[in-house]
Measured scan of single mutants.
Amino acid sequence: NQASVVANQLIPINTALTLVMMRSEVVTPVGIPADDIPRLVSMQVNRAVPLGTTLMPDMVKGYP
């Protein structure tokens, strides 16, 4: 099973992602692959992302 990117904390709308905000976890449904975490750094979320939420491609501005 492939690990996905999961919010490690509440991420407010328009926040630029940092490594501490994300963790990898095997979840269903599958979200953004954990391998993409380095690419996500400094990209902004377009909505508030609660703790434990799987990051989906449509939540991150400019992804992929």
Rank of each mutant, 00 (worst) to 15 (best):
N1L: 15
Q2R: 04
Q2D: 15
A3S: 08
A3M: 13
A3W: 10
S4V: 02
S4D: 00
S4W: 02
V5F: 00
V6Q: 03
V6E: 01
A7Y: 01
A7I: 05
N8C: 08
N8K: 09
L10K: 07
L10C: 15
L10M: 09
I11Y: 01
I11H: 01
I11E: 02
P12N: 08
I13N: 14
N14I: 03
N14K: 06
T15S: 10
T15R: 06
T15N: 04
A16N: 08
L17I: 09
T18Y: 03
L19T: 09
L19K: 09
L19H: 09
V20Y: 08
V20I: 14
M21N: 09
M22H: 00
M22G: 02
M22C: 03
R23P: 03
R23A: 08
S24C: 07
E25D: 15
V26R: 03
V26D: 15
V26W: 08
V27S: 04
V27H: 03
T28A: 11
G31C: 03
G31P: 00
I32R: 01
I32C: 04
P33M: 09
A34E: 09
A34S: 10
A34Q: 07
A34K: 04
D35H: 09
D35T: 11
D35R: 04
D36Y: 13
P38I: 06
P38E: 08
P38V: 11
L40E: 01
L40M: 06
L40G: 00
V41W: 03
V41E: 05
V41Q: 07
S42H: 11
S42E: 06
S42A: 14
M43K: 12
Q44C: 06
Q44H: 12
V45W: 00
V45T: 11
N46C: 13
N46V: 14
R47K: 15
A48R: 09
A48W: 06
A48Q: 14
V49Y: 02
V49T: 04
P50H: 12
L51G: 13
G52V: 02
G52C: 15
G52S: 07
T53L: 08
T54F: 02
T54V: 11
L55P: 00
P57I: 06
D58S: 12
M59P: 01
M59G: 03
M59Y: 08
V60R: 00
K61Y: 08
K61Q: 13
G62F: 07
G62C: 14
P64Y: 04
P64T: 14
